[in-house]
Structures are given as structure tokens and as C-alpha cells.
Simulated scan of single mutants.
Amino acid sequence: MNKQDLRVLKTKNSLQQALLELLKTIPLEKIKVTEICKAANINRGTFYLHYGTVEDVFHDFFQEVIRDLQSSYDEPYKNTIPFEISKINPNSIQIFHHIKRHQSFYEIVFSKNTNKSYYYMLFDQIRLNMERDYQSDQIPDVPMDYIIGYQANAIIGLIIVWYEHGFKETPEEMSKKLHHILKISR
């Protein structure tokens, strides 16, 4: 990677971090380019070199978070073929590590003062992940979308409680909790 690439990455990261800070108090649709530039200590010309709108900054950042979420979600499936909950090692559950890496984003997503569209964006992504791995014989006579909706909200429910606890438990402790819940619910 050359110096130009590093500068681009640093600039984009600065803009994304500035946006996250602003999102704690201002809804996305009300954030102006001037505000994000000021918070990132970047001029408007530099902003427009990388992005067209504030929404583009959010979209770029959200896509990075989703790629990491996807990778974290997939981790337990890599070494368990065919997939069986009883064979999962709790250490392979990486979704809570993902949440911790992106804690400031999730603090915004789960804040009661934030637009719930962020929550639904997360919910939709978790559902997409689960749809890939769904086995049709899981619960007879219940449509797949209901089962997946239930399971996605169960994961999000754990994350919300963790958020409400101030993320005081470690990701490893949360993985063990989820592993235990999955084992007893089968």
C-alpha cells in the first residue's frame, strides 16, 4: 500500500469517526457537510474528494461494519460441518468481539434517542446471515421468516442487554452466555 492509500484511509477514517461523534447527538439527516468537516478537521474540498454526501460517509462506514459482522457471524460455522450447536466451541462465537470493536457504533444503534432505522438495518443484516444457514426442518409448520425473525431478535436482545449493562462483560463472557442459552434451548 502506498502513502496515498494510507492518507485516503486516514481521511476516510477521520470523517467516519467524526460522523459517529455527531450521530450521538444529531440525527444523520440533519448533519451537514460543514459540521462533519469541522469535527474531522478536514476541509470541504477534501470531503468532496472522497464522498458526495454525509449519507455516503455513513454508508461507507456501515458497509465496513457489516463486512466485519458477516465475518464474525460466520466464524462458528467454519469448523463445525455439519453445523451442530452442541459441537460449537464458545470461543468460536465472535459476534460479541465484533460488537466490542464497533462499540461506539452500537451505542448509537441502541440508544433510545436514535432513529430506529439503524436498528432495522442491523436486524435485516442478521436476518440475511441467518437465512443463509437456515435448515427447513427446524420447526415444522412455522414459516421460515418467523423463525429467523425470532432468532435475529434473540441475538439483538442479548446485545441490547449487554449495552444496557455498559458492555461491562467481556466478549468471551457474552459468547459463553449465548453458547449456554443455545445449548439449553435445543
Rank of each mutant, 00 (worst) to 15 (best):
S111H: 00
Y106F: 15
Q138C: 08
I42P: 07
I93Y: 05
K87E: 04
E21A: 11
E169S: 09
G166F: 03
F105W: 15
S111M: 04
E169C: 06
K38N: 07
E64S: 10
L69K: 07
G149C: 06
D5V: 07
A152Y: 04
I126S: 01
M144L: 13
V142M: 10
V161S: 10
M121I: 14
H98Q: 05
K116A: 04
I155Y: 03
N89R: 11
L19W: 01
E35G: 08
S104E: 15
A39P: 01
L15Q: 10
Q70M: 01
H59E: 14
V54D: 06
I26F: 06
F105I: 08
T34Y: 14
I148W: 02
L158A: 09
S92M: 05
E131T: 11
G149R: 08
R44E: 15
Q17W: 07
K32H: 12
I139E: 13
N13F: 08
V161H: 06
K176Y: 08
I99W: 03
N43Q: 10
Q94H: 13
N43G: 10
I93E: 02
Y119Q: 02
I159E: 03
L22F: 10
T46I: 11
H179K: 01
V142C: 07
S71E: 15
R7I: 11
Q17R: 14
L23K: 01
N129Y: 11
I147K: 09
F167S: 03
I139R: 12
G166N: 04
L182A: 15
K177C: 05
F105Y: 15
E107W: 00
T114A: 10
I85K: 07
K176W: 05
H180S: 12
V142D: 06
K116R: 12
I108N: 13
N79S: 11
E164I: 05
I108S: 10
L128K: 14
K176T: 07
R67T: 09
L122D: 06
L6Q: 14
A152E: 03
Y77F: 15
K38W: 04
L122H: 06
T53G: 00
V161E: 13
L69W: 13
K100M: 13
Y48H: 15
L178E: 02
Y73I: 10
E172Q: 12
E172K: 05
F167D: 02
L6N: 11
H59G: 00
P76C: 09
H180V: 09
D5K: 01
T53D: 02
L22T: 08
